[in-house]
């Protein structure tokens, strides 16, 4: 129920693009002289991390908007608008972070497969790999924080703060890991994931095309995820309304009572909570 004309068109185009990408990446683009067919993993591996980076940048941007919109002092009708916009950006941040985690996981999986055939090991303590895995775990933590039940405004704010800390921390992690590895590992790996090789011609175009395809797929899923997040909020609100209505009905059925009795009961409820 989260589809619309726009997303249906986008979904169809993305699906067709994936089919074309499979043909381009698996048949039409040539095998590498050195790596052979293994180079074809690049068309999944590299666009995945690009999409993941893009998602995390979007998360950070949306989080900054959330904090901007929920800063204190906005009251009245201004406050209502600000609150709606904050909720909007909070959903954007959540949907984008989830996509980022999925695509980082894809990068790590395809990367270790690629590493196995080119380096002979699934994992190397290379700077980029270590940074990626820390990035992955950081955003897993971010998603875990988002899942915890809390009042929506304060949840939006604390997740926004966490997303911004994660972004500030990223260069520190990258720099320190880079320094750590380059001091201890003389030979840098020229081939394989993250290798500093220039690809030209058909390989280059296939890579660019794959990136466009991945972006479309991610966009399609992301828009749906945003709408699902909206529905989740609505469901939460509906459940709360229902609970309140049930409470009210219970109260009215009990018949009229003295105000003293009522206030006593209310006080009891408050203290028992």
């Amino acid at each position: 129920m989260t589809g619309s004309l726009a997303t249906r068109v986008l979904g169809a185009v993305a699906l067709a693009a994936v089919a074309v990408m499979a043909i381009l990446a698996l048949w039409i683009s040539p095998a590498d002289e050195v790596q052979g067919d293994a180079v074809r993993l690049m068309y999944v591996h590299v666009p995945s991390i690009w999409v993941a980076y893009g998602s995390f940048v979007l998360t950070a941007f949306a989080s900054a908007r959330v904090l901007w919109r929920t800063r204190s002092g906005a009251g009245g009708s201004q406050g209502v608008i600000a609150d709606r916009q904050a909720r909007h950006w909070d959903r954007v941040a959540g949907a984008a972070a989830e996509l980022g985690v999925i695509f980082t996981a894809l990068t790590l999986m395809t990367g270790s497969l690629w590493g196995k055939v080119t380096w002979g090991a699934y994992w190397q303590w290379d700077a980029r790999l270590t940074t990626s895995v820390l990035l992955f775990v950081t955003y897993l933590g971010y998603l875990a924080l988002r899942r915890l039940p809390a009042e929506s405004r304060s949840r939006a704010r604390r997740s926004a703060v966490m997303a911004l800390i994660a972004v500030v921390n990223l260069p520190i992690v990258h720099f320190s890991v880079d320094w750590w590895r380059t001091l201890h590992q003389e030979a840098s790996l020229e081939l394989g994931p993250g290798g500093a090789r220039n690809y030209t011609g058909e390989m280059y175009w296939t890579l660019l095309y794959s990136w466009a395809t991945f972006t479309m797929v991610a966009l399609w899923i992301g828009i749906h995820r945003y709408r699902v997040l909206r529905l989740e909020e609505l469901a939460e609100e509906a459940a709360l309304e229902e609970l309140l209505a049930a409470r009210r009905a219970e109260y009215e059925n009990a018949g009229p009572r003295s105000t003293e009795q009522e206030s006593n009961e209310r006080a009891e409820q408050v203290t028992s909570r």
């Binding site: 933590g141 875990a144 924080l145 320190s176």
Partner: peptide, 23 residues
């Protein structure tokens, strides 16, 4: 401060803290 008062903050805190403290 980010996880104060949250349910299951005990189990979440290491997951959040260790990656940030990695450098």
């Amino acid at each position: 401060a980010m996880t104060v008062g949250l349910r299951s903050a005990d189990t979440l805190l290491p997951l959040l803290l260790i990656p940030v403290a990695a450098p």
